[in-house]
């Protein structure tokens, strides 16, 4: 069973309006890809940025998703929303990009230890950025499945059912991954002295 076979029927109604676009996508029509991009790039980019924690790597992930779309759409049966399908592709392609983001972050952390330029942000903004960076570092140490579950459920505030549809796993599995992710992240953040 592929990831896309397990998507639920609840989005079938919303998938219908895309039938014409899907047909054009299946014929490798580049203008159809552009159309889908205009409709869904925002949601996809937001997810990619939260997952990778790096704007440039997130753009690479978005690029790869839309380049892979004409080929992947041949496996799409139309029983889920196109956005859910796009997120599924992103999840499948995320591994390489998450690693790249982690490497970039490590390199940037090394650079950040140099004395920085004058900051225009107030102290609170600096603290917020520090917390977000600490969370990203902690996320880098989670297995990809748990990371995806945490980002989608906690940061993007999606339901576990929706996440289950995207990742192609049972809802209970998603909840279990989320439980373990929280536990590990708490421990990691405490270790960093953020408790």
């Amino acid at each position: 069973m592929t990831l896309f076979d397990s998507l639920p029927d609840r989005d079938a109604a919303s998938a219908d309006p895309h039938a014409a676009v899907l047909a054009r996508l299946r014929r490798d029509d580049a203008s159809a890809v552009a159309e889908v991009y205009d409709l869904h790039h925002g949601a996809l980019r937001a997810f990619a940025r939260k997952l990778t924690g790096d704007a440039q790597v997130a753009e690479d992930l978005v690029h790869d998703v839309f380049v892979a779309l004409p080929k992947a759409v041949k496996r799409f049966r139309g029983d889920a929303a196109l956005r859910t399908f796009l997120l599924s592709i992103a999840v499948n392609l995320a591994k390489k990009h998450v690693r790249a983001a982690s490497r970039r972050r490590t390199a940037m952390d090394r650079l950040a230890q140099l004395p920085s330029a004058v900051s225009v942000d107030p102290e609170r903004e600096a603290q917020r950025k520090q917390l977000a960076a600490a969370l990203q570092r902690a996320l880098d140490r989670l297995p990809l499945d748990q990371r995806i579950a945490f980002v989608m459920c906690e940061i993007e505030e999606r339901s576990s059912g929706e996440v289950a549809a995207v990742v192609g796993s049972p809802e209970e599995t998603v909840r279990t991954r989320l439980f373990h992710a929280r536990k590990k992240l708490r421990a990691l953040l405490e270790k960093e002295g953020l408790a």
Binding site: G53, L135, Q136, I155, L189, L194, A195
Partner: peptide, 9 residues
């Protein structure tokens, strides 16, 4: 601590 970090993210 995790709540704050998630809000920041």
């Amino acid at each position: 601590e995790l709540d704050d970090a998630v809000n920041a993210a």
